[in-house]
């Protein structure tokens, strides 16, 4: 190879190296290789602290429509969820329960860690939709009305169970679950369990412990256990001695035939007017 050819090759290599495009491309690629492990580490920590959203499924893509799905992918799932919630609210005002449920399913899929959506969705299905069906369903037979009601209760239950799986630390969801099982599904044992679970969460109000004990008192075969809990609550102090608790204790002491010497409450209610019917007293609490 001649000297001039060699010099041309060197010059061309130098030109190639000093080309801005090559340098820019090299920078991006090298940085890409360097940052991948760093990003993997940060991603892991995000997951550890529950700061990563759930994966968007293809099923959700079909339900949301393309534009909303792209917005959700583009980092605006909270915004899309909010707009869908407003649409669901309009559907509620028009008593379009099927559409409302469909929209709320999308909202909870987009924002599975927002407890308020799970809670309100369950409330709408378990209380509003089920009552509407009873009042305006116009079913030819009572059995069909009951079945429709039951379907809405099941929907509410499904929302709450999924909500609890997604946000197990949220006491509000356990409380609504307890309310649903007690008020709508006639399941005091399940209700008591839900209240108890809720009472063990951080920030849970004290009344959840009492609710758990009240419902346990209604759970067949658990009267002795309920009595022990109510008694323990009563002995904790004045702030726990609410009329409902006293009434429940009295009922259980009578039912379990607790000897007079061991009783905390007198067998018959006092005759003062405000205590004649403790259920209607100001401090009465009904779970």
């Amino acid at each position: 190879m001649s000297a001039s050819t060699q010099s041309c090759a060197v010059k061309s290599r130098r030109r190639w190296l000093s080309d801005g495009r090559v340098l820019a491309g090299a920078l991006i690629v090298i940085f890409g290789l360097v940052r991948l492990p760093i990003e993997k580490n940060i991603e892991g920590q995000f997951r550890e602290f529950g700061l990563r959203p759930a994966t968007l499924t293809l099923e959700l893509r079909e339900r949301l429509g393309q534009s909303a799905f792209i917005a959700a992918l583009g980092g605006y799932r909270a915004l899309v969820a909010s707009f869908l919630w407003i649409t669901a609210h309009v559907a509620w005002e028009n008593t379009e329960w099927g559409r409302m449920n469909h929209l709320m399913q999308n909202v909870v899929a987009l924002q599975p860690r927002a407890w308020i959506y799970w809670d309100r969705a369950a409330w709408h299905m378990g209380w509003n939709a089920s009552v509407w069906v009873r009042q305006h369903g116009n079913f030819p037979r009572e059995a069909l009305t009951l079945r429709a009601e039951r379907a809405y209760y099941e929907l509410a239950l499904d929302y709450l169970h999924r909500g609890v799986r997604n946000i197990p630390e949220q006491w509000e969801l356990f409380m609504t679950l307890g309310h649903l099982l007690a008020d709508k599904m006639n399941d005091p044992c399940g209700s008591s369990k839900a209240y108890r679970e809720g009472s063990q969460r951080v920030g849970a109000p004290g009344y959840l412990r009492r609710f758990a004990a009240y419902k346990l008192a209604e759970c067949p075969g658990h009267e002795q256990e309920a009595y022990k809990e109510l008694r323990a609550l009563y002995l904790e102090g004045k702030e726990q001695r609410l009329p409902t608790l006293i009434t429940k204790l009295r009922e259980l002491e009578n039912l379990l035939a607790i000897p007079a010497s061991q009783r905390l409450i007198s067998p018959s209610p006092p005759s003062s007017p405000e205590n004649l019917n403790p259920q209607k007293s100001e401090n009465t609490e009904t779970p």
Partner: peptide, 20 residues
């Protein structure tokens, strides 16, 4: 992954609004 930035790294709004 090498060429494009991972912008999800900077998107925590969805979790922040729910109180995380």
């Amino acid at each position: 992954a090498i060429i494009f930035p991972d912008l999800q790294m900077f998107n925590i709004v969805d979790e922040v609004v729910v109180g995380r």
